[in-house]
Amino acid sequence: MYLETIGKYALMLKEVFKKPQKPKIFWENYFKEVEDLGIKSIGLVGFISFFIGGVVTIQTARNLSNPLIDKLYIGYATIKSIILEFSPTFISIILAGIVGSYIASTIGTMRITEQIDALDVMGVNSLNYLVLPKLVAAVTFYPFLITISMFLGVFGGWVVGNMTGMVLSEDYLKGIRYSFDSFDVFYALIKTVFFAFFIATIPAYYGYYVKGGSLEVGRAATQAVIWTSVSIIIVNYILTQLLLS
């Protein structure tokens, strides 16, 4: 059963990666998807990142209350948590929920209302037409989105640290620069590209092959979010093992 699903998913990707029939239409769709899948998520991603950054700072400050431990470690721990794990992995899981259900339900609705059949009988490669712009949009835009999340997360930590008085501004700023490794950002963005790939393609798979009516589209969207999240968690572990160990 799982092998059949993986095989069908691989065959879907084969069709998705074909050359677009009309490059001009592909680029029009690409920019539309950048807006739908990326730009519209900036607000929520920014909001979550800012406050989680603040929460991480408070929790770290509480756990580093020992006067022998330098306060700069609060900023250091915050930036490490945000860059290595929170922004790339947890924001991607949040995106899997928002964007994944959107992709699965829009493509699924097109399937049950015969819009995909209409594309096929016109001679349009429906998988390529519908999925490739989403995939390219996610893979190219999400690293940018995650970079915004990293910045706002760290900024949120600084604001909350200052407001609560748990960490002085100069300690926090010293901490975020303390043994800063640019490879951490590279590692996070590599992970993001892989996660973006799954966020675009797994929901597309569930939407494209849905059978039935609106109830099944709803179920497909739920399945899509579950399996995208599971894939992100597993790939996160594999990539971490490969890149950091």
Binding site: T113, E114, Q115, V121, M122, G123
Partner: peptide, 20 residues
């Protein structure tokens, strides 16, 4: 070749299948 033939085909679906 099938795609080429399909360009010669027009279809009216039961539910219209207009792109909403």
């Amino acid at each position: 070749e099938k795609r080429q033939i399909r360009k010669e085909v027009g279809v009216v679906f039961q539910g219209n299948a207009l792109f909403d």
